[in-house]
């Protein structure tokens, strides 16, 4: 009886040890298996502006109250047009900064006179909601110098970006942490 009990205990201990050892081995195996696939740096989300179809989802699908996606301006590509189709609606009444002549619903684009007949357009990121209305306008008739980018000072870098899930053109990518932006016209400038 005593022996029998001892044997049972021994068997149990052996079983336990085996399970313990095998689970440690499993974890080590998993770690080793994935080791070759790890990237030392983290990845962040970014929009590929060449694929983006400026649908406007960025304004509404971000987990943040204020979307982390904002309009960005590649100045080197801009034509500095007086009639800016990113700033003004189609058939504008006048070419000025009146509320009725602004395409942007929040007035986040600042139009400044540079020299005749050129105007500079800057984005006020505090106001921009990422609706991409200006991007659509600029792409349609202009040089396409306005485009959408995730601003990493705002982005909380969700494991799965909820705008990426809702993006119709699947323009969201995971990019390496040290190259967090895909800028338009970046290869044109040294």
């Amino acid at each position: 009886m005593q022996n029998n009990k001892k044997e049972t205990i021994n068997r149990r201990r052996f079983l336990k040890e085996t399970c313990f050892g095998s689970s440690i081995a499993a974890l080590a195996g998993l770690a080793a298996g994935l080791w070759s696939k790890t990237s030392p740096a983290k990845t962040v989300w970014q929009i590929d502006p060449e694929i983006c179809s400026s649908c406007g989802n960025c304004a509404t699908y971000c987990v943040l109250e204020e979307s982390a996606v904002k309009c960005v301006h590649a100045y080197a590509m801009c034509g500095y047009c007086d009639l800016c189709t990113g700033y003004l609606p189609p058939d504008p009444k006048d070419m000025d900064t009146g509320a009725e002549n602004e395409l942007c619903p929040t007035g986040a684009i600042i139009r400044t006179f540079v020299e005749d007949p050129y105007y500079e357009y800057t984005i006020d990121e505090k106001l921009c909601i990422g609706c991409a209305k200006c991007v659509k306008g600029c792409d349609a008739f202009g040089n396409g110098s306005l485009f959408m980018q995730i601003r990493h000072d705002r982005c909380v870098n969700c494991n799965e970006c909820s705008i990426a899930v809702a993006c119709p053109s699947q323009a969201f990518k995971r990019v390496p942490f040290d190259k967090p932006y895909i800028l338009k016209g970046a290869n044109n400038t040294p």
Partner: peptide, 21 residues
């Protein structure tokens, strides 16, 4: 479509801001 202008008033192109992650 509209070539970037050559400015005569000494205007320099601003850089596109890229806040770091």
């Amino acid at each position: 479509n509209f070539p970037p202008p050559d400015f005569e008033s000494g205007y320099t192109l601003p850089d596109t801001e890229v806040p770091e992650a």
